[in-house]
């Protein structure tokens, strides 16, 4: 299993892949902070159920959590990026035919899945770290430009940053597992990414409007709540339970497909 992890770490360290992944995370961190603070400063608000984002109020931004509020606000966007890169990492094995060599070398197959999940978890932690660093760098000037008081941010800033990094990472790992499962099922990163983007931008906002209340089982809502440490409508415990269910289903589906399906690619 350690061999599978070490092998995976060698293969995912592709400059294009990492620059794309970390670059998009940084870009979204900048974008969301800029929009979030300027919108709050104007006193305006995005409509309820706007796809991919969950902005806090100006009052909330002035609390110690305001420093890192951009991370959970952009959790769904980060989530789609993470889903995409996990899907690419899986689908590349099939598109290049590498899966034949991997399975021939490790016929039990499930260690390949464990190694891939472990390697991608490490990279997701780094990508979340990049987004966190960019967020912490961008938030103060964005807040000052919007006229939001940041005097409370310095209190326990390190702890706030660490806990937000951890909760955002937890949410992104679920997104990643979903992307991994779709990619194993379809053997296509394009389909996995389309499903992810389509779900976040189209399907979930539609479902949110169609369904009464704020269903805790909707992926984006659940994971945003997880990243935020719970919301008024979805408690942290509920979010964790839903997320755990998604992870269990995703990993079980991926494992079943990888272990049982013939390698004909």
């Amino acid at each position: 299993m350690l061999g599978a992890l070490r092998s995976e770490l060698v293969r995912v360290r592709r400059r294009g892949l990492l620059l794309g992944w970390f670059g998009l995370m940084a870009l979204f961190a900048v974008m969301v902070n800029t929009i979030m603070f300027s919108t709050a400063g104007d006193g305006a608000a995005l409509p309820e159920g706007a796809p991919g984002v969950a902005f806090p109020s100006a009052t909330a931004l002035a609390t110690p959590d305001g420093l890192t509020a951009g991370l959970p606000a952009a959790a769904s966007m980060f989530g789609v990026v993470t889903l995409s890169f996990w899907a690419i990492a899986v689908a590349t094995d099939y598109s290049t035919g590498l899966i034949r060599l991997l399975v021939a070398a490790m016929p039990r197959r499930w260690p390949l899945l464990v190694g891939k999940v472990a390697a991608l978890t490490l990279l997701t932690a780094v990508a979340t770290g990049v987004a966190t660093v960019v967020n912490v760098a961008v938030a103060p000037p964005a807040a000052q430009a919007a006229g939001i008081d940041t005097s409370a941010w310095s209190a326990g800033a390190l702890g706030t940053v660490a806990s937000t990094w951890a909760s955002t990472l937890a949410a992104l790992l679920v997104w990643g597992v979903v992307g991994l499962a779709i990619a194993y099922l379809t053997r296509s990163s394009a389909i996995a990414i389309s499903v992810g983007v389509g779900y976040v931008l189209v399907l979930e906002p539609m479902l949110t409007r169609l369904l009464d209340g704020d269903p805790a089982w909707l992926l984006g809502r659940t994971l945003t709540a997880l990243a935020q440490g719970g919301t008024p409508s979805i408690a942290l415990g509920t979010a964790i339970a839903s997320a755990a269910t998604y992870v269990a289903l995703g990993l079980a589906g991926a494992a079943a497909v990888l272990v049982r399906r013939d390698v004909t690619d």
Binding site: G3, A4, R6, S7, E8, V10, R11, R14, R15, G16, L17, T92, T96, G97, L98, I99, R100, L101, L102, A104, A105, M106, P107
Partner: peptide, 30 residues
């Protein structure tokens, strides 16, 4: 599996990685 080496159908590698890195990844797997 540890006593068998194989080339199935066509060469399969990560195109953006060097020849050595591709082989290193397979060596580590084994």
């Amino acid at each position: 599996a540890a006593r068998v080496g194989a080339l199935v159908e066509r060469p399969a590698f990560v195109p953006g990685l060097s020849a050595r890195t591709n082989l290193r990844a397979l060596a580590r797997l084994r």
